[in-house]
Simulated assay, not measured.
Amino acid sequence: MTESGRGHDPERNASRARRLRDWWRPEGMWRRGIVLAVLAVLLGLLMILHAQVPNTVGNLGSLLETFLPWLGLIGVPVLLVAAVLRRSATAIVALLLPAVVWFGLFGGQLTDKKGTGGNLTVVTHNVSDKNLDPAGTARDIVKSGADVVALEELTGDALPKYKEGLAKAYPYRTVQGTVGLWSKHPLTDAAPVDIKMGWTRALRATVQAPSGKQVAFYVAHLPSVRVKLNAGFTANQRDNSATALGEAIAHERVKQVILLGDLNGTMNDRSLAPVTAQMRSAQGAAGDGFGFSFPAAFPMARIDQIMMKGIDPVSSWSLPRTGSDHLPLAASVKI
């Protein structure tokens, strides 16, 4: 039989027509993809009830909350593609639940909330103890034009280069352990803050703002967290330090407070509540997008924070990458 003859085979064409009809038959579209629909509903419920996921086993709740935005950013598109390929109307409709929940939780972060009128710019940057170009990082910080700069993970070898590179732009400074604060404005009352680590990774100092008001600055680098197969999310030491830091800030007598640092946790992480419950995130109130800061090569979480109380954040943004594995963050505030 010729090719043209095959193309006009009535039986073959009828079979194709039946398959096509069955493929798009409405009742078939609603019956297919039940498993995908169930997964979509579970995804939505997981985002709604994330606070109910316990931390008793491997700190699973905190681990989930650290990457909570990615549940929707990855989960919804993947399930949508699967639903389309499966030709499942049920799964597509079920995906409305996680999509609506995600936009309810994070849609506000997609809008540009930056304003104008700030009179003090601050920067925080974990410069990394493996930074091969501390002098270059110091130059980048100076270029930011910030009034007050907090640096974390300072090492003995790199510290002299930061001091030298920042000295001209920032005549006032204090370094306590592995954290430091540089300022264009007078800085007094500098002292370490005990965050229960055994060595100094937090400080407090008073800065006289351009308006003449006193602002209490805290710089902190909370303990690192790890994800281990045999132990889950190992964050207990960080959680204890967060509690100690929160207590110090709660007892602060100066009404206007700014916290800068690497907290090794996101604003969604319930374990940072001793700090986050009493302070506003500059990124959340005056940022544009998620502002992920780590890792610098492909940021997936905002574990570096600029927070404040008694002060209005005006705008918040990320600075270009330096020699660190963290991105520097900046914010403008109105004192």
Rank of each mutant, 00 (worst) to 15 (best):
T2M: 01
E3Y: 12
G5P: 10
R6C: 05
R6L: 13
P10N: 03
E11G: 12
S15P: 05
L20G: 11
L20E: 15
W23I: 09
E27Q: 15
G28P: 09
G28F: 12
R32M: 03
V35G: 15
A40R: 06
L43S: 02
L45D: 03
L45R: 08
I48T: 14
L49F: 15
V53G: 05
T56Y: 08
S62W: 08
L64I: 10
L68Q: 02
L68D: 01
W70F: 13
L71M: 12
G72K: 04
L73R: 06
G75I: 07
G75F: 06
G75Y: 04
P77F: 07
R86H: 11
A89Q: 10
P98V: 04
A99S: 15
A99T: 15
G104Q: 07
L105N: 04
F106N: 02
Q109C: 05
L110N: 11
G115N: 06
T116S: 15
N119F: 05
L120I: 15
V123Q: 03
T124R: 02
T124H: 04
H125F: 10
N126Y: 07
A135H: 11
A138E: 06
V148A: 02
T155F: 09
T155S: 14
Y162C: 07
G165S: 04
A167E: 10
Y170F: 14
P171C: 03
V175C: 07
K184H: 02
P186D: 01
T188L: 03
D194Y: 10
I195M: 00
M197N: 11
R204C: 04
Q208H: 14
A209P: 13
A209T: 08
G212Q: 01
G212Y: 01
Q214P: 11
A216N: 08
A216R: 14
H221Q: 13
L222E: 01
P223A: 06
S224M: 10
A231I: 08
F233M: 01
Q237W: 06
Q237D: 14
T243G: 14
A250T: 13
E252T: 13
R253A: 14
Q256S: 15
I258N: 03
N264I: 01
G265D: 03
M267W: 10
D269R: 08
L272A: 00
T276M: 04
R280F: 07
A282T: 09
A282K: 03
G287Q: 00
D288Y: 12
D288M: 06
A297L: 12
A297P: 04
D304Q: 05
M307F: 02
M308K: 04
K309M: 05
I311G: 00
P313Y: 02
S315R: 14
S316Y: 12
W317P: 08
L319C: 07
D325K: 12
H326Q: 10
L327H: 09
A331S: 09
S332G: 13
